[in-house]
Design a protein around this nucleic acid. Sequence first.
DNA 1: CTGTTAGCGCATTCAA
DNA 2: TTGAATGCGCTAACAG
Lengths: 341, 341
Amino acid sequence: MENNTITIHDIAKALAINSSTVSRALNNSDRVSLKTKKKILDKANELGYQRNLLASNLRRNKTNTIGVIVPRISRYFFSSAISGIEKTAFDKGYNVIICQSLEQLEREENLINTLAANRVDGIIISVSMETLNYDHFDGLKKNGTPIVIFDRHCDLPDRNNVLLDDFVGAFEATNHLIEQGCKNIVHFSGPKNLNVYRNRLKGYKAALEKHEIPFRENLVLNSRLMQEDGTKLAEKVLRLPESIDGIFSANDVAAIGAMQYLKKKGIQIPKDIAIVGFSNGPTSAVMDPPLSTIDQSGGEMGELSANLLFEHLNVESVKREPKTIIVKPSLLVRESSKKRG
Amino acid sequence: MENNTITIHDIAKALAINSSTVSRALNNSDRVSLKTKKKILDKANELGYQRNLLASNLRRNKTNTIGVIVPRISRYFFSSAISGIEKTAFDKGYNVIICQSLEQLEREENLINTLAANRVDGIIISVSMETLNYDHFDGLKKNGTPIVIFDRHCDLPDRNNVLLDDFVGAFEATNHLIEQGCKNIVHFSGPKNLNVYRNRLKGYKAALEKHEIPFRENLVLNSRLMQEDGTKLAEKVLRLPESIDGIFSANDVAAIGAMQYLKKKGIQIPKDIAIVGFSNGPTSAVMDPPLSTIDQSGGEMGELSANLLFEHLNVESVKREPKTIIVKPSLLVRESSKKRG
DNA sequence: CTGTTAGCGCATTCAA
DNA sequence: TTGAATGCGCTAACAG
């Protein structure tokens, strides 16, 4: 409401010097004598000066800030990715603005606009499920703000991607289940428009093929990435004619929902079911039945994304070379899961 | 890198009008004719104009942005609180900047400084575990930036607080366990310097007292809020001379860690143990054994915090009246938990 | 309804 | 090493 903010001019006036000297001192320039520098810093402290980054950023045309947009910060994969990004950004002296799109395209568009309007230096994003094209990125592209898209595929050329090798992950997960003795493996999949889920399905098929298990279309159950959807999935599983002895879920959220539903109903989950998902949250190990997981290694992907972004930040936009980084997933087998085989 | 950004002057020049008219049009002022407004908006669109909020905010001395600092965004309570805040903020036309202190005072201080330097209009914070005093809030106070502290207590007067009634929550949780037939109830507590944990301990004691169960100091196990600490807790529980038939955990993270450890060791968790925690995350229902929880109602606390902040945003700082809001927690008993009795 | 003018707070050029 | 002057992009008086 009120406006008793101290500016560099106030400091300058108090010391009978020029504000540009104050500015230099506060930026630790070596073009100001140690003596006056000290005098200035002391006075700044005394007056309770607080720099105005709005003004500074406007003047420098640079904010030293990057924006991160993820569907939901509460998902373990994303929060660990954010940690990775923050770590890297911190080392380079950058601030991070975290935003969540809640899987809504409209929110994503708004966020991108707001970040752009606030002149972030770059953006790292995992696009929402509703995002089918990348038109809303065009503005950023035009004014040369680098973007890194991680986790979810972007088909367009000319983009920076940091992705998990979904095919390999799905293959290994399914393969693991088969080696445990599973024969009738349900596959929880996600929205068909997402590349991720298509590739995971391919990996699932490939593993079946390797072991000469026939692929059955009816064992592939699609859903959105909401916990409520797990209920429907669970009901579908219970209605299947086959006796299911394994689930490969490419959709951890829905999988959790399904387990929750079964448990609430008091339905004993068949002993031989193992659930294999892509997100390795802190609670996965205490779940019943235990999970084996393909670790999505969020932290690593976050760091890689940030590094890729910073690479581009330091290069004129015309000279930037888009790059795609593929991360190999790793299978984590739970002790207690092994015993079920 | 480059600088081909369009400003309102470019639009003005292209239309041979004045930039202040453009500014008004873009802000949808009614002091500009519909005809020119349309002309301006079209041209802005055509040129790919993107407003510079740095400049706008600097000029208006207002950012329409609030900062939120939480220890970790991945904790369910905090991410749901953030959702509540975002919902409220969105309705009022505010942006939200999310930050995590990772429970480190130094990070918290830096974040507050950065937010202040970026001239956020207000801050909502749940302080880190290392935060023992509130000196780093003084700068904000001086320049009249309102602050709301939620979740963790602040002893100082003159502060806005949104808190959970920890005593009642702990009392009800423990009472629930006793009514299930538990007699030897371990209490997982948190850092002793936090008011929260002291009050929860009091509630635990009060419930024991009500049922004339003697309080035993050795059943109270302290730890930090890290999952690794759960391991130590579990080991301590196993070494206790009493046969434990209930756990009241005021520290959900550590509790999960403990369960994880026991499971990994293949130790059968005694049938009659129930864990009661304060965070009602999406996975709690599939955990084994199932949990009854005192719902911390993060969403509600977030909304209340945001509303309190906005109340203060619209009042001169001298006229603001600090307020403390206490939220009543609610007990959620799991179906499967009831049966154990 | 539109134009003129001034300045938010800062960093940077150019002179001294 | 310091000062003077300029302008980043925008909004808000005030005047017309």
